[in-house]
Amino acid sequence: MDETLYIWSAILGVTAATFIARSSVLLLGERLQLPPTVESALRYAPACALAAIVANDLLFTAGALDLSLHNPRWLAGGVAIIIFAATRSTIGVIVGGMVAFWLLRAWFSG
C-alpha cells in the first residue's frame, strides 16, 4: 500500500477509535449495562496497553532487550517514575526524564 494512503487510513482509524471509545457509552445511555467482569476488564485495559507500549520503547535497543547501562532510556524511565512518586507532576516526569536521559547518555557513551 502507498505510504501516504496508509498513514491517512491510520489517522482515520485512530479518529474512529476516539469516537468509539468516548461516545458509544454516552450514546447507548442506560440501555447498556456492563457485567462487572467486563467493567473490570475495561478498567485495567488502558494501564496494561500503556505498560506494553512503554516497555517496548524503553527496554529495547535496535530490536533486542537491553537492560545495560548503555541503554539510557530505561534508566531515564526509572528516574521519571521516582520523580512522579515524589512530585505527582506530569511535567516533572517529562522534563526530569528527558534531563536524566541526556545526562545518562553523556555519561555512558564516553
Partner: peptide, 9 residues
C-alpha cells in the same frame, strides 16, 4: 514515551 508513563503511573 515519558508522557505515556506519566499517564500510566
Amino acid at each position: 514515551t515519558l508522557a505515556l508513563l506519566a499517564l500510566l503511573i
